[in-house]
Amino acid sequence: SAAGAPAPEHLPEAHTAHAPDPAATPDAAEPGAAADRTPRAPGAVADGNAAEPGADGSVGRPAPLTPEEAFDLLYTRTAAGLVRQTFVLTGRRRLSREAVERAFQLAWQRWPEVATDRDPTGWVRAAAYEYAMSPWHRLRPAHRHPDEPPAEPERRELLTALHTLPPPYLRTLLLYDGLGLDLPETAAETEASTPAAASRVLHAREAVAERLPALAAEGALQDALRALAAGGPAPDPSPAKDVRTGCERRAEVWTRVVVVATALIVAATAIALLTSPGHYEPPMPPTRQVEGVPAPHSGPQRLTAEDRKLRDRLAAEPAAGPERLLPGLG
């Protein structure tokens, strides 16, 4: 929690003294996005645009990249490093690769927003971290257990110690000490306040130093984290074209699902309108008598004059004789 957390200036000076050197560690600084924070125009996400010669042979302004070229350049430069970083968070190579590909698919889906962001790499990194650290992956059989730890004892011990930290602490420590982000940027990416991010960094350092006393020295944990995030087996991410195609195919599938669901709703509404009554029929009051139906008689009916005559005749005649067999004779 942020309560009682030290102010940002109370953090140790090891971070400033051991700032990452992009020239010395290109893999570690590649996805960190701490070197260039200037806003970019769409189509100019990364450097390296080919310059077009002018009519007089002089080199003019760089030719703007198409959205596909800019996305492919960003993916080529940062995907491998992001997979290594995500592996530090999860310990699962397959999940790390899946998280990075999903993050880039989301970036291609929202490319105008990502291309104009001040830090496109940070945008994709945040999306990959969020996907990789989702607790729902524990329910998937393929990601239920972590992969085999690295063969090197130092890397294996550090990775084991890192995975004992709570996920928010591990993520904050990786961003601040592993990638070299400053404290406000780390707090913004982890959606925490600056004092809370500082507290997480300090507590994470203490927990790792308690398990690995050799990393308690100033700058030792930062160097080990950068080496862990930049090293390891080289990942093999999918080609950028396949990522863009997968994103477009996923969007097409969801579009078809929405169209089919909308058509079913419209059909069900039309059937309900056709089969429903066209006017309101008020319910019959419970005490109202049904008209047109004769009321039932209670008890025997009253005898008519003819019925009484027949009754008296039957009572006066004898009970046996031909008169009973041949009525009305004699």
Rank of each mutant, 00 (worst) to 15 (best):
T90G: 03
T269W: 02
T25D: 14
E154M: 09
P286G: 01
A270S: 02
D47K: 15
D72F: 02
F71K: 04
R37S: 13
P135Q: 07
T16I: 13
A217D: 09
L303A: 12
L162A: 10
G4I: 06
P12C: 00
V260F: 05
P318I: 03
L225N: 08
E317F: 04
G321A: 05
E191Q: 15
P6E: 08
P195A: 06
T287R: 10
L73E: 08
W254V: 15
T172F: 01
T269Y: 03
P64T: 03
H10A: 15
A216C: 07
E101P: 00
A230L: 07
P282I: 11
A161T: 09
P31A: 02
L325M: 12
L225E: 05
C247L: 10
P285G: 11
R138Y: 01
Y169I: 07
A34G: 12
A5E: 12
P168G: 11
M284G: 11
N49K: 13
P22S: 13
P67E: 01
T121F: 01
L325N: 09
T38M: 09
G278F: 01
E281Q: 14
R288M: 05
A220C: 01
A272N: 07
L65I: 13
V45I: 04
R93D: 01
D117A: 12
P195W: 04
S1V: 13
A315Y: 10
I271C: 00
Y75N: 01
S134V: 03
R250A: 14
G54I: 10
